[in-house]
């Protein structure tokens, strides 16, 4: 059902636009997204201006802000203290305002944010068993596996097994603390600075603080600047909402 279509050729001839390849083919999904949005606006469910503001905000966020917070905390003990005491205020120091884009945040990112500090005896990992609450202003949009029932329903019950599937195995004496962000607080993990990064600049350090490290399913390593791909698997032995198994649904 898709067809070829030409974007503006005069435009393409411009050198500035020639570099990046693009998909020059209309897909049914692209059409569906536009159709749903246009009808919702016409019916007054929301306005075009509201949609534009949320889109601009959605395009502006990503895990780089979280990486900067961690790298700064690693190199500046006073900043780290401020970050742990009042994370929303500390975010403003790096130019990140949790009040965007509405003045009071988004409908699912409230202005309550805490940073969880790992120690040699304590490892944090975040989840939202109810939906997929995620600290989007600092980490961007959640990865698909974070939203998957497999992760959400199993991490609270079998955290060590789930972490092992991510390649992270921790000794039993290390306390694993699962933080289920089911209400208004959003959380991010402050991992420990790894050995082998002595003398590194804040920018160098930020490069190894990947998204997965701030969720708590990976530890930063001096030799890794990107997260490994994570296939989404169907839930195995999920926790169900039955009284026998008492769980999150």
């Amino acid at each position: 059902m898709q067809s070829q279509h030409d974007h503006d050729h005069a435009h393409d001839a411009n050198a500035a636009h020639r570099a990046a390849p693009m998909v020059d083919e209309i897909s049914d999904f692209e059409v569906l997204e536009i159709a749903v949005r246009e009808l919702a606006i016409e019916k007054g469910l929301f306005t075009a201006d509201e949609h534009r503001r949320f889109t601009e905000w959605a395009e502006s966020i990503g895990p780089a802000a979280g990486s900067r917070l961690v790298a700064k905390a690693w190199t500046d003990p006073a900043f780290k203290a401020r970050l742990l005491a009042d994370a929303v205020a500390a975010c403003r120091e790096i130019g990140l305002d949790w009040a965007e884009p509405t003045g009071t945040g988004t409908p699912s990112d409230y202005m309550e944010f805490r940073v969880l500090e790992d120690t040699p005896n304590l490892h944090h990992v975040i989840v939202c068993t109810l939906c997929s609450c995620y600290p989007r202003p600092v980490l961007g949009h959640s990865p698909y596996w974070y939203r998957s029932p497999n992760y959400r329903r199993r991490l609270v019950r079998w955290p060590r097994q789930v972490l092992a599937e991510f390649g992270l195995q921790l000794p039993p004496e290390v306390e694993i603390r699962v933080e289920d962000s089911n209400q208004k607080h959003r959380f991010m993990v402050l991992p420990m600075r790894p050995p082998g990064t002595e003398g590194w600049t804040e920018e160098q350090l930020a490069e190894i603080v990947t998204r997965d490290c701030m969720i708590g399913v990976a530890l930063p390593r001096p030799d890794r600047k990107a997260d490994d791909p994570r296939p989404v698997q169907p839930a195995r032995r999920p926790v169900e909402s039955t009284s026998a198994n008492r769980a999150a649904g």
């Binding site: 998909v23 897909s27 999904f29 692209e30 997204e33 536009i34 749903v36 949005r37 919702a40 469910l45 929301f46 509201e50 949609h51 534009r52 949320f54 889109t55 905000w57 959605a58 395009e59 509405t102 988004t106 409908p107 699912s108 949009h141």
Partner: peptide
């Protein structure tokens, strides 16, 4: 896909309203 952020914005707007 390029339409993903717009989809997210639609979800946010429906939720905000």
């Amino acid at each position: 896909p390029p339409w993903k952020t717009s989809l997210h914005a639609t979800c946010e707007c429906l939720s905000a309203a």
